[in-house]
Every structure is written in structure tokens, then in C-alpha cells.
């Protein structure tokens, strides 16, 4: 099972912290990103990571394996 993890603002916008989407194992980074329309406003302000590694939000295909973690990480600015 693949997990999509939402952090900071993205968790607020998406209304959840984690989900396990089903569907084809091959998806582009953009397809994964577009799963949540509410996130559109922060598109240029996130680190999008697959298997804990930065991935450019583009059309390149990602082969997702069970157990893979997709993370959406907006910067936080507080301190």
C-alpha cells in the first residue's frame, strides 16, 4: 500500500494527514499531486517527495511500490 503524507499547511488544506490511494502503480508526479485540488494554491511552495526523496512536479512517471511514502511538505516559517 502506498501512503500519501500531508504536512503543515497541506494537511490543513487537504483536511487529513495521511491517506492510502489505490489505483495504477504507475503515476506521474503531477497526477499524484492533483489528487487533492485544494492544494493547487501552494503548488510552487512545496517539497514533493517520493520515498523520502525530492521529486520535481512534472510528467515523469513514478513506479510506486507497496510501502512507498509520498510526502507533501510545505515550508513552515514560524519560530
Amino acid at each position: 500500500m502506498v501512503s500519501v503524507l500531508y504536512f503543515a499547511r497541506s494537511a490543513e488544506l487537504a483536511g487529513l494527514r495521511c491517506e492510502n490511494p489505490l489505483g495504477p502503480r504507475q503515476k506521474s508526479a503531477l497526477q499524484l499531486w492533483r489528487r487533492s485540488v485544494k492544494l493547487a494554491v501552494i503548488r510552487d511552495q512545496v517539497v514533493f517527495a517520493v520515498r523520502q526523496e525530492y521529486v520535481l512536479l512534472g510528467d515523469q512517471l513514478l513506479l510506486l511500490q507497496p510501502g512507498d511514502e509520498v510526502a507533501i511538505i510545505p515550508p513552515i516559517s514560524g519560530g
Binding site: 503543515a8 499547511r9 490543513e12 488544506l13 494554491v41 501552494i42 511552495q45 510545505p74 516559517s77 514560524g78
Partner: peptide
């Protein structure tokens, strides 16, 4: 790009 001000939680 900076985040839209509305989306920043301080």
C-alpha cells in the same frame, strides 16, 4: 514563489 499570504499560518 512565496506562499499566498492567506495560506501562511504563523
Amino acid at each position: 514563489e512565496p506562499p499566498p499570504p492567506d495560506t501562511v499560518t504563523n
